[in-house]
C-alpha cells in the first residue's frame, strides 16, 4: 500500500502516522488520532465544523490533504485548554450562552482563535465576517459574537496580545 508516512505535530505532540495520499487532515485527526473534538459534517468546506488551526491559520480540515501537513503545526480544540483551565474563548462561550447543541462550537472557537491572533481588537462586524464560514444553526450567532468580543477584551487585558 502506498501510504504517506507523516510526521505531524498536533497540539504540540508529534505523531507518526501512515495515511493514504488522498485522505484529509480531518480523516487523520478523527480516525487515526481519535481527536473527535474536531467535527465532521458537510465535507466540502461549507459548514466549518471541522475547522482547526494549521501554522496559525484557520483551515477546513475536511478539504486539506493530511499529506500536505507534513512538518506543520496543527492545533485542535483539544489543544486549546491549558490543563484544567479553559482558554478565554472557551470561558467566554460558556459565560455568554454561546453554546447550544455545541456541534459547531469547536470549529467556531478555532475559527475565532486564529482570527483574534491576527486581529486582537476586532469590531462586531469584523467578527461576523470572520466566522461567516462556520455555520451555527442553533444560536443565530448573536451570543457567539458576544462571546468572541468578550474574549478578545479579556485576552488583550491579560496582556497576551499587543
Amino acid at each position: 500500500m502506498t501510504e504517506v508516512q507523516l510526521d505531524l505535530t498536533v497540539n504540540g505532540r508529534r505523531h507518526r502516522v501512515s495515511v493514504p495520499a488522498h485522505h484529509s487532515l480531518l480523516d487523520v485527526l478523527r480516525d487515526e488520532l481519535e481527536l473527535t473534538g474536531t467535527k465532521t459534517n458537510c465535507l466540502e468546506a461549507e459548514c466549518g465544523v471541522c475547522t482547526v488551526v494549521v501554522d496559525g491559520k484557520s483551515v477546513a480540515s475536511c478539504t486539506m490533504l493530511a499529506a500536505q501537513c507534513q512538518g506543520r503545526e496543527v492545533v485542535t480544540i483539544e489543544g486549546l485548554q491549558d490543563g484544567g483551565d479553559l482558554h478565554p474563548l472557551q470561558e467566554a462561550f460558556v459565560e455568554h450562552g454561546a453554546v447550544q447543541c455545541g456541534y459547531c462550537i469547536p470549529g467556531m472557537i478555532m475559527t475565532a482563535k486564529a482570527f483574534l491572533d491576527e486581529n486582537p481588537r476586532p469590531t462586531r462586524e469584523a467578527v461576523r465576517e470572520a466566522i461567516a464560514g462556520t455555520l451555527c444553526r442553533c444560536t443565530g450567532y448573536q451570543k457567539i459574537v458576544d462571546a468572541i468580543m468578550a474574549a478578545s477584551q479579556r485576552l488583550v487585558q491579560q496582556g497576551e496580545r499587543p
Binding site: T36, G37, T38, I77, L80, L86, V99, G102
Partner: peptide
C-alpha cells in the same frame, strides 16, 4: 453541559 461542549470532550453521535 457547556464545558464538555467547548472543550471538544462531548461525545456526539458521529464521534
Amino acid at each position: 453541559d457547556a464545558r464538555g461542549k467547548v472543550s471538544g470532550k462531548a461525545v456526539y453521535g458521529t464521534d
